[in-house]
C-alpha cells in the first residue's frame, strides 16, 4: 500500500512536471509608446554616433532651388505592419535657419515592417546662403505614430550654404582646408563630399571612400595642380594660391 502510494505520487509528479513546463512566464515586452531616435552612425569599429551634417548648394545646378536631406531614424517598440509617419521639429536654441524660409519639414516614413526610416528636411537655396552658413538644430517631432526616444540621439544639426563650406569629413590626405583648394578638388574630381572609411579594419561601405582611395585622389590632384600651374605660367593666377595667399599644395 505504502509502496503503491509512493509510485503513484512519483508518476503524478513526473506528469505534473511536464504539464507545468508549459506554464513558463513570458518575458515582458516593450510597453511604452513607440518612440524614435536619430540613427546616423559612422562606419567604424565602434559605430560612432554622427549628430551633424553639412551641405552646400554649390555642387547643384544654378536652377536647383531646393534639395531634400534625409536623416536616418530608428524606432523603439514593436514592429508594426503599416507605414508610420515621422517628422522633424526645430530646436530654437542655436538655430539660425528660419522655418518656411530656409527649410521645411515634410513627413517621412518608417515603412511597414521596418524599424528604420528616413526623416526628410527640405532645404531652400535662399540668397543669404551666398554669404552665410545657416544652422538648424532639430529633434524628433511628435506624430500620431512616434514620440522622441533616446536622449543621446534626439538632437541633430544641419548646416548649409550656397558657398563653399568645409565638408565633414575633410580628408587628411588633402592637407589644410581652403576654399580655393576645395573648389579645385570639385572642379577636377567632380566630388564635393568625402564620406570615408574611418578605420582600415572596417571595410568601407558602398559610397564610402577608403583611405587608399583618398590617398590616390590626393596623388591625382597633385599631378593636375602641377599641370594647371604649368598652363597658367606667366598669368596672374600662377601659381594657384588660396584665399589667404598661401600656395595650394596636396
Amino acid at each position: 500500500m505504502n509502496f503503491l502510494y509512493k509510485v503513484t505520487i512519483g508518476v503524478l509528479l513526473i506528469v505534473g512536471l511536464f504539464a507545468l513546463a508549459g506554464c513558463e512566464k513570458d518575458i515582458d515586452g516593450y510597453t511604452q509608446d513607440p518612440r524614435l531616435y536619430f540613427f546616423e552612425r559612422a562606419n567604424d569599429v565602434n559605430r560612432t554616433r554622427v549628430s551633424s551634417r553639412t551641405f552646400t548648394f554649390l555642387t547643384l545646378a544654378d536652377e536647383e532651388m531646393k534639395d531634400t536631406l534625409y536623416i536616418k531614424v530608428k524606432t523603439m517598440g514593436e514592429i508594426v505592419n503599416r507605414d508610420r509617419q515621422v517628422m522633424g521639429k526645430t530646436i530654437a536654441e542655436g538655430t539660425t535657419a528660419i522655418e518656411g524660409v530656409d527649410f521645411d519639414f515634410i513627413p517621412g516614413l518608417v515603412p511597414a515592417g521596418n524599424i528604420e526610416g528616413l526623416l526628410p528636411v527640405v532645404l531652400y537655396r535662399t540668397l543669404r546662403l551666398k554669404n552665410e552658413t545657416v544652422v538648424l538644430n532639430l529633434t524628433i517631432g511628435e506624430t500620431a505614430d512616434f514620440k522622441a526616444g533616446v536622449i543621446e540621439d534626439e538632437v541633430f544639426t544641419l548646416s548649409w550654404a550656397d558657398r563653399l563650406i568645409q565638408p565633414n569629413p575633410w580628408p587628411f590626405y588633402f592637407g589644410a582646408y581652403s576654399n580655393v583648394k576645395y573648389q579645385f578638388i570639385i572642379d577636377e574630381l567632380g566630388i564635393a563630399e568625402f564620406p570615408s572609411q574611418l578605420s582600415p579594419r572596417v571595410e568601407n561601405l558602398p559610397g564610402e571612400y577608403s583611405l587608399a582611395d583618398l590617398q590616390d585622389m590626393a596623388s591625382r590632384l597633385r599631378v593636375r595642380l602641377r599641370e594647371v600651374n604649368t598652363e597658367n605660367f606667366g598669368k596672374p593666377n600662377y601659381p594657384l594660391r588660396d584665399e589667404n595667399g598661401a600656395l595650394v599644395v596636396f
Partner: peptide, 17 residues
C-alpha cells in the same frame, strides 16, 4: 596596389608620377 585588410581595397591607384 599597396596591401590592406580587405581584398576589395587592394586596387591599383593612379600611375606613379
Amino acid at each position: 596596389a599597396t596591401t590592406g585588410f580587405f581584398e576589395s581595397d587592394i586596387k591599383f591607384g593612379s600611375p606613379a608620377d
